[in-house]
């Protein structure tokens, strides 16, 4: 359990800064709002427990409580819309309160405990099951 930051070395992050600037000018794309708030060059792995799964528009959210040195910290993980998750084989019961979860996010640039969903597995490493339709 805990938070793992997948950041580059200092030299790499200088390059990364240039790429980010280019990215901002390049026009990020997202259905509901700009994606520029998320740092897509950094991946954070959250190993914690699901407190809430919001199956809502315009975005679904997983609230993950992650143990930290100073105590539990709650992260807000933004996903696509119910339409997009449904299309991906999810439904409102795919993730349940109390589930152990390992979720990778692109974190907020402003340092708040939130991020954009990249991928997730259950605590034991198995995938969240997709429903065949």
């Amino acid at each position: 359990m805990g938070v793992h930051y997948g950041r580059q070395s200092r030299r790499a992050s200088w390059k990364c800064g240039c790429a980010l600037m280019a990215g901002a000018l390049m026009a990020p794309a997202l259905a509901h709002h700009s994606g520029a708030m998320f740092d897509d060059k950094v991946s954070v792995t959250l190993n914690g427990t699901v407190r809430q799964f919001q199956w809502t528009n315009p975005h679904c959210w997983i609230q993950v409580v992650v143990p930290d040195k100073s105590g539990p910290v709650e992260w807000s993980v933004e996903m696509g819309s119910p339409s997009q998750l449904f299309h991906g084989g999810w439904n409102p019961k795919t993730v349940r309160v109390g589930d152990a979860i390992v979720v990778v996010v692109h974190p907020m640039r402003d340092g708040t405990k939130g991020g954009l969903f990249v991928s997730a597995t259950r605590g034991d490493g198995t995938p969240f099951g997709a429903v065949a339709r």
Binding site: M37, Q54, T56, N57, P58, H59, W61, S76, P82
Partner: peptide, 9 residues
């Protein structure tokens, strides 16, 4: 899809 149900952005 809508933008009003739970807009946290």
């Amino acid at each position: 899809f809508d933008c009003v149900e739970n807009d946290r952005n």
